[in-house]
Nucleic acid binder design. Structure first.
Lengths: 213, 213
DNA sequence: TGTACATCAGTGAACGCGCGTTCACTGATGTAC
DNA sequence: TGTACATCAGTGAACGCGCGTTCACTGATGTAC
């Protein structure tokens, strides 16, 4: 039978998750380096000191958020690079990215913001996870017949290009969402980003097909 | 004859520049959204209240830093896309980017960090300047014979791809520099980034050459 | 099943500190005559 | 050139406030017998 957590453990995890959620919400309008411990506990409704039962500092909480945010990204990336013919793969990838931004906007914003942000351990955690994703994408790409004759280094180079391009596209959808809240052109902006991202990925795919050719 | 500033104006500009320089230094280890006004004036050696003679807030100072940082980038981008044969153009572009990161590391870090940072007016200022750069790159690309048959939209799409790629490359050199301070493999890391960036740009150029082909 | 003790997530008071902002000021620089 | 007044970049004291961290605590949950 499955192991059930004790009441105490379950409640602790619930509070921890509430802290993570509250922090993610507060990070919509600021960076991790200015996020205050008291701010987070106030939003959850617990005493400031309760924070220390879960995290050493807001930096530490930030690292936990990286795991959570990139955990949600993981299955999305898997789907993105799953086999399909090239034209369809790109269309599907852009749709998946748009859907991911709709579903986890705060996660996407957090990663984009803190990837180059002011907190070193968080930057490093993001860099490590993205490197893992690139390895995974590389493994998928290697399965394509188009990858015949490619060496490992070039495949990894291409994988990084795709991963970066996914993040850029996610950021563009994010910006479009934010603009939509004030300018009422939500659908148009979104369509424009879809077109742009699709063409950029197509151009990269064309480059791939003619590489060394 | 050239107009000389009065002593008062000259001194004021000097203090203003000192505030900008100090802020840029302090932003190596944090984000703009956590930068304090008193921190900046303390670093310069003036009273906190002097800050208000130059900027309304640290946000306002941030917008001024965008102008300064992307002002220094402007001539670099011009050189980067200046005519040359394709192979040489890419080699030269990567060298120029590496040199720019060496010369203005704090500017590069600032733009990478605040492009998706927590301060909306600063994000917008960066977005506007990058859009201007993309327009400029597009104008240069349009001059190439390879651009025959390309419509405006696709040229701008390609220009954005190049601009984003330049920023990614700059970030990679930045990371390599930071890693070098602790791991003593400075030259190797740098060479690795040069190789990676060169190949990625080459792949994009191959895609360009065979686009619609 | 019941009892006695241990654990530990969350509390609440207290601390010293640096923050952003206000205000009236000073004294060097600028200007009018 | 000299004088009298205006301007204004930078000062320094003062303010109320929220911060991160410490500490001894409480009381529900867990465990041993």
């Amino acid at each position: 039978m499955s192991h059930t957590l004790g009441i105490r453990q379950a409640q602790k995890q619930k509070t921890r998750q509430a802290l993570l959620d509250a922090a993610l919400g507060l990070l919509e309008e600021q960076s991790l380096s200015s996020l205050g411990l008291r701010e987070v506990t106030r939003a959850v409704g617990v005493a400031p000191t309760a924070f220390y039962r879960h995290f050493r500092s807001t930096e530490d909480l930030g690292v936990a958020l990286v795991e959570e945010a990139l955990g949600s990204l993981h299955p999305m990336i898997r789907q993105t690079v799953a086999p399909a013919d090239s034209g369809q793969r790109i269309t599907r990838a852009v749709e998946l990215i748009a859907h991911h931004v709709d579903t986890y906007p705060a996660h996407v914003r957090f990663i984009a913001r803190e990837r180059h942000g002011g907190v070193q351990p968080v930057r490093q955690a993001i860099r490590e996870q993205l490197a893992r994703f690139a390895e995974e994408v590389k493994a998928e790409l290697a399965k394509d017949p188009e990858s015949d004759g490619w060496n490992d280094e070039d495949l990894l180079m291409l994988a990084h290009l795709y991963v970066d391009q996914m993040l850029i596209t996610a950021s563009l959808f994010m910006e479009a969402m934010e603009a939509a809240e004030t300018t009422e052109f939500s659908g148009e902006e979104r369509e424009r980003v879809t077109q742009l991202a699709t063409r950029q990925m197509r151009l990269i795919s064309v480059g791939r097909r003619h590489w060394l050719g």
